[in-house]
Design a protein around this nucleic acid. Structure first.
Lengths: 158, 158
DNA sequence: GACTAGTGCTAGCAAAAGCAAGCGCTCAGC
DNA sequence: GCTGAGCGCTTGCTTTTGCTAGCACTAGTC
């Protein structure tokens, strides 16, 4: 499962996963201590993880994911525990092809997906017009801000 | 992600994963030393894992999976690192890989997708229990008659 | 019998993971 | 000024992980 060079992979993963956790934490606008408390890990250890000084176990990653309110798989992917699965170029097509969903459920999912995309695109455009000298920062901060403001649709499809 | 009682879960996982690895090894008719060599871990450590004396990291599990020629995800599931997911694991991966979404938006989509699947599974079960004498009518009225993929994630072995 | 090859496991150790205690710093309030 | 609260990080410790060296045992060959 580990493609090649477990040591190199782990080293790259160490830098990647720590940066990713920090990004998510900053987007959520919580401090190291706050996230550590939410996640149930020690704050020095979280700090070390973010700086790539430690390689956390899957269990710790799951706890951090819980604190960040994201799925553990996302952290596993970036930590190299799971592999990205290529193959589906179009998410909409994949949704439509899923035989475990009713047609209306498919439409609900597609609508939500597309509305997320539209909002992200609008925020990205607005951020670029406001801050043309820092486009990376604008991209990083936009999706979470949008998600916060968007009311959750209830899964009512039948 | 960890459902309940991380300590109890880990303890049960310790017994479960070790027994599972031993079963797979015995089915493959290889010795502890042979599998250890194939997997690139020490044979005493593999023996300890099988007997539940140690809790191996995801990296070690991935190596053992490679030696057993099974997917690492199977071992992760039994070790409690991954949880079973409703629906198509490839669709979940596609959502996670979509770069036009924020991480929390991805989580929202996955949650909704899974809840749809659970609803459909329940409706399918109810339809099958209600209409044993008219199977054709039950098939027509159910939103989804067949589910292509099993709830298990597909093996990612390469 | 001795020897070899293989078996699973014990014991002890080094390295790594994860933690608690505490540091120096910044900021707000008095 | 002082104090308290919060910040991220350092340090040292305990526990856990994963390993090496080696043991006792079995089976086969001479």
């Amino acid at each position: 499962m580990i493609a090649d060079g477990p040591k190199e992979q782990a080293k790259r993963a160490g830098a990647t996963i720590g940066e990713f956790i920090r990004e998510q934490r900053e987007q959520a606008e919580v401090s190291v201590r706050q996230l550590a408390r939410l996640a149930g890990v020690s704050n020095p250890y979280l700090s070390q993880i973010e700086r790539g000084l430690r390689k956390p176990s899957a269990e710790i990653l799951a706890q951090i994911a819980k604190g960040l309110r994201i799925s553990a798989e996302q952290l596993y992917l970036r930590a190299g525990i799971l592999e990205f699965r290529d193959g589906d170029p179009e998410l909409v097509s994949a949704i439509l092809a899923d035989e475990g969903l009713g047609e209306r459920q498919k439409q609900v999912l597609i609508d939500i997906y597309e509305s997320f995309h539209r909002e992200n695109a609008q925020l990205l455009a607005a951020a670029e017009s406001e801050a043309p000298e820092t486009p990376a920062a604008a991209v990083d901060s936009s999706p979470v801000t949008t998600h916060r403001n968007q009311p959750h649709p209830t899964p009512a499809g039948k």
